[in-house]
Each structure stands twice: as structure tokens, then as C-alpha cells.
Design a protein around this nucleic acid. Structure first.
Length: 478
RNA sequence: GGCCUCAUGGUCAAGCGGUUAAGACGUCGCCCUCUCACGGCGAAAACAGGGGUUCGAGUCCCCUUGGGGCUACCA
């Protein structure tokens, strides 16, 4: 049988990383088995509907490299893929479930249900309407009395199943409530729509968060009542913000888009979240989507919550950045270099090259290169460096030589500058650092720079380099 | 409160009865080096606690503690 998994988010906001990981595992599992990955939008709660949220889901999955085989914008043989467009289907099946004894009409008012609240503040329905006669129900229906359809859960017995990651799960039916399947507005609740859709769409493996672990017996009751085959359940541990708080979209934590706009690469994000709750047999960390598909396995999925560690995400992102060739990095970093005040003034390719090994996320770019524009009077004590055996006196003698050497160059490229400066050191019997340190300080007026004297001169260009060295010489002679 | 569930360094995690308890991030140190990075090498750092079972327990069982989830006309 062909494996079919689905990702079924509700369009309530942005794509958060927890959902993203669920989608990823669904995708990996399906693709590994040559199966289909389906996207279904669960929008039965009209109050939570957020404009544009569906588009965010589409684009996030696309950017994350999770191409679904069927979905609202893709079509497929099991549509529609948006629950609000399937309204009639649910009501029809709900009625069938009533026929089969798995559910019943309930005409109780909210007030009456509220009055059933127990000492812990929990409402537990008392199956009052289960005992209505056929005539009473018919009469209420004809009178148009508002109703909901409730699941009829046995008063005794135990519901159990084998979860693919958590193992045997058993819940006493008396712990479960006769939950509402069809709301008074005629729309189904998640509990019902989910079961009906998963079955109708031929979902073989249900992959979702642990919040459904203990309510799954309720769903199994429905599968059984309908005479449908139960899917394989694969529940996933949550991703936490810290030891006690889940990453949640409510607080706007960890939205995929936010990370992308901060300069994280989608592949790095996806790669990282794959590792939260799963480890491949060979302990690989940096993996392509294809490698993840090949390595994915359910026995590598962990049962305990994983804390989201943005420090490690940054590291991984840095690894991706470093692995890019210079041209690719040059292109992808463009929007971030543009945010710097140095943009357009120097060779972007040279700058990008320096940046590549020095940043982990691209939003660090502007602050890293703004220094190029911050030149002016500086503390000449910066010329002092013990290990290099250089100080202001050394600078006074070296800088003019550097000036002349650079001034003599026709071609001001990396190699030429490098050779000129180093041969200067050899000729005059200086240590490399005795030339390069003062030169770099003179060129940048900074004690730390991303790159050395040669790179700095190269980026600044001949004219500006000479100007700055001259400026430093004057400063020293003041 | 009841029920479900989880528990290895600061973090992610290997481990699935016998190991010097991996690896990665981070931290620290050293090397490389014109500074900062990169890269290389190395170090510190963990089986929540208590009972069992067993010749032997991080691995199995129970309890305690702690965490998460469910307990909605949300999903």
C-alpha cells in the first residue's frame, strides 16, 4: 500500500517551527517510502481565521523544500483540500455515525452544559441527550432547535493502540468526554473533520504532535464505528522555547519567515529542526534534504521534548554559508549588504568574500562592514603591538615605505599588494607583522578588522589607501 | 485535581544488560596567524533521587521528584 502522509495546519497566523518540523517529518517519511505528502488546510474555526495565512503556509513549505503532492493550490484526486469547502461531507458522515451509534444529537443549551462543571472546573457532559427517543429528536429537528452532534463514548472499557514512537498507549474510556463532532454552526470540530478527512484522503500514517497522544483512542472509536481501517500513529515530542515553555505561535516565537528575514537560510533552518527530535543512525548533522529522506527512521525519533537552541542553529547556518561558493554568497548576501552605509562604495565581491567566514547569519553583515566608512583621527597607541614588536616609532619608519611601495603599484590587486608588502618586509629585514600591523591600523583606524592589511587595501583601492596612510603619517608626526 | 507521557553534560543527542558513557553546539586552552575570523589539536562537563530484578543496570520493574500534554461548539 502506498504511504500517504499529510500536514494539516490551521491558517491562524504564521508558520512556526514546530509545525514546520511536523511537516518535514511527514515529508521525509512519505518520500522515503515513495509515498505522497498531502497538504490540507484545517480552517473549521472561522473565528481564528487570519487573512493571508494560507499563502504563508504555501510559501514556507516551498522555501523549506517540502513539495507536497496534493493540496489546495495543487489539486489532487482527494480534494477539496480545504476543510471549509468540505462542509457537507462532514455532516453526512456525522449522520452516518449517529446511525451507527457512534454519535448522537444533543440539544442541550450551553447553560445546561455549563451547569455540569465539576469541582475542578471541568465540564463533563452527562449523556443527557443520548437517551432522547427517536420521536423527541425528530421533533426537535423539525422545530429547528439548535443542536450539536456528540461522540458517544462507551462508559466502560479501555481504548488502546500502538504508537510508532511512544509504544502502547491505553486510556480508560471514562476519562474521555462525549466531545462535540459537529458544532451548532454545522461545521465539524477538529476531532471529527480530522478523522473523516484522513480516511477519505487515504492517509496511512498520521504524524502530529503529542498533544493528541491521549485523545487518539477517541479517534479510533470513530474509525471502528465506521468500519474504517485505523492509520498508523506517529506522535512527535514538542519543541520547547526553554525547559518549561513550548515554542508557540501565540507569542510569535520562532516563525519561519522571521528567521529567513534575519538572514538564516531555509535549508539550514529545515536541517536544524530535523535534528530536534530525531537523530540519524550515523549521527550526521549537516544534511541535504535528499540525505534526510534516506536516513530518516522512526526509531531515531525521540520521545522527550527538545529545547530550541538558536546558538546551534546559528552555527549550522554559518556552516551553510561557508560551504557556498563566493559567487552564490555574493548574490544571496546582496540584500543585507545593501543595508550597510558602505554599499556601492566598494567592491561587493571582495566584501562578500571577507564576510563569508565571519558571520553566522546575514543580519550581522551591516555592522561588520560599516567600519569601512568610519575613518578619522584615532589613538596612535594602536600601533603598539607587543608580539609584533611594533609601536608608534616603528609605524613612523614603516608607513612611508608602505606608502611608496603601494604607490608604485600599477595593478592594485590582492596578489600585487601582498607581494609588495611582503617583499618590503624581506628587503628591509622586518618581520611581516611589523609591516602589516601598522599598515592595517593606518588603513582602518581599527584594532580589529575582518581581514588583514592586504585585504583592507584591496577593498579601499589605491587612492583611498594612500590617502589613509598619509593621514596616519601626519597623525603620527603631530 | 484526574488521565496520558517524558527524564544521559548548559543545549541537541548516541546508547537498546557487560562501553574508559559516543558525537555535535557552546565554553575554556593551545597551534596557525598582521588583528578578527576560518582551520587544526586538546580539555572541562551527564546517566534526577530511592528501592528492587540480575553475577552484572544509563539500559528492565516500582516509587518519589521534576517537565510536557490532554481535560473547549481551538486545532
Amino acid at each position: 500500500m502506498k504511504v500517504r502522509t499529510r500536514f494539516a495546519p490551521s491558517p491562524t497566523g504564521f508558520m512556526h517551527l514546530g509545525g514546520m518540523r511536523t511537516a518535514l517529518y511527514c515529508y521525509l517519511f512519505a518520500k522515503q517510502h515513495g509515498g505522497d505528502f498531502i497538504l490540507r488546510i484545517e480552517d473549521t474555526d472561522q473565528e481564528r481565521y487570519v487573512e493571508g495565512a494560507v499563502e504563508v503556509i504555501y510559501s514556507s513549505l516551498k522555501e523549506g523544500g517540502m513539495d507536497y503532492d496534493e493540496g489546495p493550490d495543487k489539486g489532487g484526486d482527494y480534494g477539496p483540500y480545504v476543510q471549509s469547502e468540505r462542509k457537507e461531507i462532514y455532516l453526512k458522515y456525522a449522520k452516518e455515525l449517529v446511525e451507527r451509534g457512534g454519535a448522537y444529537y444533543c440539544f442541550c443549551t450551553k447553560e445546561r452544559v455549563e451547569s455540569l462543571r465539576d469541582e475542578n472546573g471541568n465540564v463533563r457532559y452527562d449523556k443527557h441527550c443520548l437517551h432522547l427517543t427517536k420521536e423527541e429528536i425528530q421533533k426537535n429537528l423539525e422545530l429547528g432547535v439548535p443542536y450539536v452532534i456528540r461522540q458517544n463514548i462507551p462508559e466502560h472499557g479501555v481504548g488502546s493502540y500502538e504508537d510508532a514512537v511512544y509504544g502502547h498507549i491505553a486510556v480508560d474510556y471514562n476519562e474521555l468526554e462525549d466531545g462535540i463532532l459537529i458544532k451548532s454552526d454545522g461545521l465539524p470540530t477538529y476531532n471529527f473533520a480530522n478523522v473523516v478527512d484522513d480516511h477519505l484522503m487515504g492517509i496511512t500514517h498520521v504524524i502530529r504532535g503529542t498533544e493528541y497522544l491521549s485523545s487518539t483512542p477517541k479517534y479510533n472509536l470513530m474509525y471502528d464505528a465506521f468500519g474504517w481501517e485505523r492509520p498508523v500513529y506517529i506522535h512527535l515530542p514538542p519543541i520547547m522555547k526553554d525547559a518549561t515553555r513550548k515554542l508557540s505561535k501565540r507569542y510569535g516565537d520562532a516563525n519561519f519567515d522571521d528567521f529567513v528575514s534575519k538572514g538564516y537560510l531555509p535549508e539550514a533552518i529545515v536541517n536544524y529542526i530535523a535534528l530536534l527530535g530525531w537523530a540519524p543512525k550515523d549521527n550526521s548533522e549537516k544534511m541535504t534534504m535528499q540525505e534526510m529522506i534516506e536516513k530518516f527512521s522512526l526509531d531515531g525519533v525521540s520521545k522527550s521534548p527538545a529545547i530550541f537552541d538558536d546558538v546551534k542553529l546559528r552555527w549550522l547556518n554559518g556552516e551553510y554559508l561557508k560551504a557556498m561558493d563566493d559567487e552564490a554568497f555574493y548574490r544571496i548576501s546582496e540584500p543585507f549588504r545593501k543595508q550597510s552605509k558602505t554599499y556601492g562604495k566598494y567592491d561587493g565581491r571582495l566584501i562578500a568574500k571577507l564576510l563569508k567566514t565571519r558571520i553566522e547569519i546575514m543580519s550581522e553583515i551591516p555592522e561588520k562592514i560599516d567600519f569601512l566608512e568610519e575613518y578619522g583621527e584615532f589613538d596612535v597607541n594602536m600601533f603598539y603591538h607587543k608580539k609584533m614588536k611594533t609601536d608608534t616609532e616603528m609605524a613612523k619608519t614603516v608607513l612611508p615605505l608602505v606608502y611608496d611601495a603601494l604607490n608604485a603599484l600599477d595593478s592594485f590587486d590582492h596578489q600585487s599588494i601582498h607581494d609588495a608588502l611582503l617583499s618590503l618586509a624581506t628587503e628591509k629585514q622586518f618581520k611581516n607583522g611589523q609591516i602589516l600591523w601598522p599598515a592595517r591600523v593606518a588603513l582602518t583606524a581599527k584594532d580589529v578588522t575582518p581581514g588583514g592589511a592586504v585585504e583592507m587595501a584591496e577593498i579601499l583601492g589605491k587612492e583611498e589607501s594612500l590617502r589613509r596612510i598619509k593621514f596616519s603619517m601626519d597623525l603620527l608626526n603631530k
